[in-house]
């Protein structure tokens, strides 16, 4: 790795990587459907007018609603939110995908941007199935 701030861990496990499978789809179904619904301008307007009402309509849990109110993007994704769904909440609020990414990296967007490009130079044949070099 060229950049010491990029985790060298290649295991594809939290908090470095959040995989999304049918299991998360089932466990966080309402959260993701709520988020995806925000691509619709009417649902965006409803959410911006009254966040609680919009979230309650989708039967989100108290924990999920609190994380959305706190803009805890990492918590939402760790809790089964699909990143492509969760960013639609951010877009509705005028927040960029990159800012959601910076939150997962534990830094501000400006700090993250200053570190780009982030780069690995490993080829598939350089690691074993455990992700070790």
């Amino acid at each position: 790795m060229d950049n010491e701030n990029i985790p060298t861990d290649q295991l594809l496990e939290p908090p470095n990587t959040f995989m999304f499978s049918v299991r998360e789809c089932v466990s966080a179904f309402q959260l993701n459907q709520f988020s995806i619904g925000l691509k619709n301008p009417q649902e965006r307007a409803l959410f911006l007018a009254d966040e609680r009402a919009a979230m309650t309509a989708y039967r989100l849990s108290d924990v999920q609603m609190e994380m959305i109110e706190q803009r805890d993007w990492t918590g939402l994704i760790a809790g089964g939110g699909h990143v492509l769904a969760i960013v639609k909440i951010a877009y509705s609020l005028g927040i960029l995908h990159h800012e959601v990414g910076a939150h997962m990296c534990g830094m501000s967007y400006q700090e993250m941007k200053a570190q780009l490009p982030c780069e690995s130079d490993l080829l598939p044949q350089d690691i074993d199935s455990r992700g070790q070099q």
């Binding site: 990029i6 908090p15 990587t17 997962m104 993250m112 982030c118 130079d121 080829l123």
Partner: peptide, 20 residues
Amino acid sequence: MSHQITGRRFGLTNPKFDQF
């Protein structure tokens, strides 16, 4: 091609792999 949009590896790219 190379990219990752979740977790602390957000922003990771690998131009060497892409060329490969």
